[in-house]
């Protein structure tokens, strides 16, 4: 299973903090976005349109990155920490 974590605005959109997907031993960010899109179409589209960054096991990856069974994927909206 692949664990997908949602943060900030995406958590609000998804209505949950995380999801789990069974996509076999190996998949890609694109295929994962299609799986997410079945329940949250807007989020799947944001991933495909690169409006959010994707991390795998806490490292930011490119859209063609391979994801393995057991990985932790996070969908990261643009950051806004700090102040000013």
């Amino acid at each position: 299973m692949i664990k997908v974590k949602y943060f900030a605005s995406l958590k609000t959109m998804a209505g949950k903090e995380e999801d789990r997907f069974d996509l076999g031993r190996e998949t890609t960010v694109l295929k994962l976005s299609e799986a997410i899109g079945k329940t949250s179409p807007a989020i799947g589209e944001m991933v495909r349109e690169k409006k959010v960054m994707v991390s795998v096991n806490q490292d930011v990856v490119l859209p063609d990155a391979v994801i393995h069974d057991g990985d932790e994927v996070a969908l990261l909206p643009p950051f806004s920490g700090g102040a000013i």
Binding site: F7, A8, S9, S55, A74, L76, F79, S80, G81, G82
Partner: peptide, 20 residues
């Protein structure tokens, strides 16, 4: 920090909550 660190800010205003 603002560019690379996964931290997000939500502001509460009279119009509701907004992720910044």
């Amino acid at each position: 920090l603002k560019r690379t660190t996964p931290i997000w800010k939500r502001e509460t205003t009279s119009k509701g909550d907004v992720w910044v």
